[in-house]
Design a protein around this nucleic acid. Structure first.
Lengths: 245, 245
DNA sequence: CCAAAAGTGTTAGATCTACACCCATGT
DNA sequence: ACATGGGTGTAGATCTAACACTTTTGG
C-alpha cells in the first residue's frame, strides 16, 4: 500500500480487499545514537500504547517488499536490509479486543473493520539503520513516530514487547553482518566509531585492542588514510568496507 | 484440520472457511536410517511431482499446532519438536498454475477451489525424527507418503526443493539441540551410534576421539554401564541424556 | 596372540583474553 | 613535556585437529 493512496482511517479500512487477510508485517527498526540503542515506534491515533511500525501485504507483493514499504513510509529509507527473524502466529495473539475498542471510539462502523478483528499472523523483520538518515514519519493512522531507548520503552500494544525482545536477540546474534554493511556505515570511519556502534548495540563494553583484531580478522575492511581531527592524540586510521566478496 | 473430518477431496475443499486464507505450513521431516539422511514426502493424487507434507491453519489454532497436526497425520508422531526455520512469501511463489491444472483434471468445479488458487504464504517447520517410529501415512489427497534419501530427491512441486535446502541448512546449524533430545534418541545408546547419526545428518565423517570430547563437553550426557555385544572388541559404554537443566 | 573397536593421552596450532607498552598529536 | 587516544606486542588460557598409543573383547 502506498501512503499516498490513503487519506483517512476509513479509506484505509476500505482497502482491505487488496490485502492478504489476517497477515501483517512488523518492522523492528533499530538505530544507535549517542550510545543508546533505539527502536522506532508509532503511536496510533487515540491509543495510549505504542506499537511497532507495521503493515499489510498486498496480493501481488512479496512479504519482504511489504516490510520494505513500511520501513520507507516511516523512515524515508530505501534499500535497507531487512531480515526476517520470527513469525508470531499463536491463536491467542490478542490484537482483537483493543482494536475493537479503538475503532469504536473512532466512530467507525462495525462492518468496516470486521476484517481487522480476526486473528492476525505477523511476520517480524528487523533492521539496523543510520539514526541521522531517518526522518520518522507517522502514518495517517498515527499521531507520532519516534525513537525510544531500548531500555526505556513505553507501554507497548499487543505482544510487541515480546517481538522487540526477540528481534534484539537476533540483532545481537547477527551483528557483524548487520553492522558491517554499506547501508549503515559512512564511507569512511575509524575503528573507535565502529566500536561504539557495537557497544551500543550489544549493551556491553568491549576491549579496544581485541575488538580491532577481531574485526580486521573478518577481512571485510581496508585501511585508508589517517584522519587528523585536531584532537590532542595520535590520528586514527580511517577504514572503509571492502567491495563485495 | 483433523484427518477424520475429511472423507474426500471435495470435502477438503469445502472446509476452507475454517482456515486462515492464503496461509499454509510445510513440514520438512528428516530422519537418519542406514547412514542416509531422509526426508518425508507425499505425492498428491494425480500429480507426478512430490511435495512436502503440509496443511492449513485453522482460525483457532496456533501455526505451530497446525504443523504438529500435519506431522501427526503423516507420521503418527506426537510431541516432536518442530522448529520454524523460514517463511516463504514471495508473490511469485507459483503454486497456482499447477494446482489449477491438477484440480481441473480431478473434475472439481472451478468455484470450489478458487480459494486455493490465490497466492499462498507458507511457514516452514523442520523436525528430526526416529525413522523406525514413523508410520508414513498419506492423506486422502495423496497416493503415497514415503522417505527419500536427501541425495536422491524426486521431482518436487513448487519451490519445495528450495524449502528443503533451507531446512537442511537450519538442521545442520542446530544439530546439537535437535539430535540430543529425548524425542529422538533411545534411552541408552553408545557414542558410536550417536556419531553415526551426526555423520549422516551432516553428510561428513567425524573423528571418533574429537567427537566424543566435544559431545561430552556439552555436559548433556551421562555414562552408564557397558554393553557387551559379543563383538570381538572392547565393550562400549552406554550413555543416556541427563535430565532437564 | 591377534584383529577390531573403544578409550585415553598428547602435541602443534589456532584463537581468545588480558595486560602492557609504544607512538603520534595538540596544548 | 605530557596527557590523550590510537596502534601493536605478548604471555597465558582455552579450544581444536590430528595423531598415537593402550585397553578390552571374542576367535
Amino acid at each position: 500500500m502506498l501512503e499516498t493512496e490513503v487519506a483517512s482511517l476509513r479509506d484505509f479500512l476500505l482497502k482491505r480487499n487488496d490485502y492478504i487477510p489476517q497477515l501483517s508485517v512488523d518492522c523492528v527498526v533499530f538505530s544507535c545514537h549517542e550510545k543508546q540503542l533505539k527502536v522506532l515506534l508509532v503511536q496510533p491515533k487515540g491509543m495510549e500504547a505504542w506499537a511497532l511500525p507495521g503493515g499489510f501485504v498486498s496480493q501481488n507483493e512479496d512479504i519482504e517488499s511489504a516490510a520494505q514499504e513500511t520501513l520507507k513510509e516511516r523512515t524515508g529509507l530505501t534499500e535497507v536490509r531487512l531480515d526476517l527473524f520470527q513469525v508470531f502466529g499463536k491463536a491467542s495473539r490478542n490484537t482483537q479486543d483493543s482494536m475493537r475498542a479503538y475503532f469504536l471510539l473512532q466512530g467507525i462502523a462495525g462492518h468496516e473493520f470486521e476484517w481487522l478483528m480476526k486473528r492476525f499472523v505477523t511476520v517480524g523483520y528487523y533492521a539496523l539503520v543510520n539514526f541521522l538518515e531517518v526522518r520518522p514519519t507517522p502514518s495517517v493512522l498515527a499521531n507520532s513516530c519516534t525513537w525510544f531507548d531500548i531500555s526505556r520503552l513505553p507501554l507497548l500494544a499487543f505482544d510487541h514487547s515480546e517481538i522487540i525482545r526477540s528481534a534484539l536477540d537476533s540483532l545481537r546474534k547477527n551483528l557483524d553482518s548487520k553492522l558491517l554493511s554499506p547501508d549503515l556505515l559512512p564511507a569512511l570511519f575509524t575503528m573507535n566509531e565502529l566500536q561504539v556502534l557495537y557497544e551500543t548495540a550489544l549493551g556491553t563494553p568491549l576491549r579496544r585492542n581485541n575488538f580491532q583484531r577481531r574485526i580486521l580478522g573478518l577481512d571485510l575492511l581496508e585501511r585508508t588514510d589517517k584522519r587528523y581531527t585536531g584532537g590532542a592524540h595520535k590520528a586514527p586510521y580511517l577504514y572503509r568496507l571492502k567491495e563485495k566478496r
